[in-house]
Amino acid sequence: MKVLTPRELPELFAALETPGAHMLAGGTDLLVRLRAAEREGRALPQALVRLDGVAVLRGIVREADGSLRLGAAATHAELLAHPLLRQELPELAAALCELGSPPIRNMGTLGGNICTASPAGDSLPPLMALGAEVELASLAGTRRMALSDFITGPGRTSLKPGEVLTAVIAPPARNFQVRHFEKVGRRGALAVAVVSLAALVRLERGRVAEARLAWGSVGPTVWRCPEAEAALMGQRLTLTALGRVGAIVRENVRPIDDIRASADYRRQVAGNLLLRLAVL
């Protein structure tokens, strides 16, 4: 495999024209998959195009409307070290804190976590709950779309050939009083989420005026439950109310069995995690 190291976006776009080229962000997922491909005798990309040299793809900027623009090639550790992240996006910070391990966070990038589009991607539930958008650029220009539209299935995105995920835009969410993320993994670090939940709840006079709930690892992509969100409207975050909504979640969720947990467990826990909102 050739390894290309562009420094600027035009160079990057040119590099992506190389036949058989594949983008290399942090490498924490891609290189593991290439290792498996090599072991199994499957074809490897002809060239890897590094994103870590393109400075414009990193960093956090606050935009005029208060949104945060997160560079897609920023590593998780870089984002976590930025004061704006913990301050403005505590649910995303909580998710990134538990992603992989310290060296994985030093290498892996937000854009990589998104484009891998794993059902268990740790950054995805909080970004979905926030209503984040992605910015995609290519020689043809730049476009923006909702993250929920960008990820189309496990491992599948709307990224076109020659296109690069350049940034993630998270709108402000300061008017949500409850901002919560919980990951259920099988151990304290280096764990793939078995179930995760990001919850943003806006209260008016103690009652739910808006609820955004997003679960990871219970479906092919991040799962939202409009029925549960609707059922929470007007409720106080009591055990009784949350228990009732948890039952709605369990009725609607369609998880699968895999090596980490059964569908039954995921269904049960997807509902249970809501109860935590009662004791925050």
């Binding site: 593991v32 099988r186 151990r187 304290g188 670090a189 280096l190 764990a191 793939v192 090596i259 980490r260």
Partner: peptide, 27 residues
């Protein structure tokens, strides 16, 4: 608590350290 070696028809499903989990310093 953690090590859940899984087999299916003699095939090891916990085939690497991503799937076979030993305790980290946090466990």
């Amino acid at each position: 608590l953690f090590e859940d070696f899984r087999l299916d028809q003699g095939r090891t499903l916990t085939s690497d350290l991503t799937r076979y989990l030993i305790p980290t310093a946090l466990d």
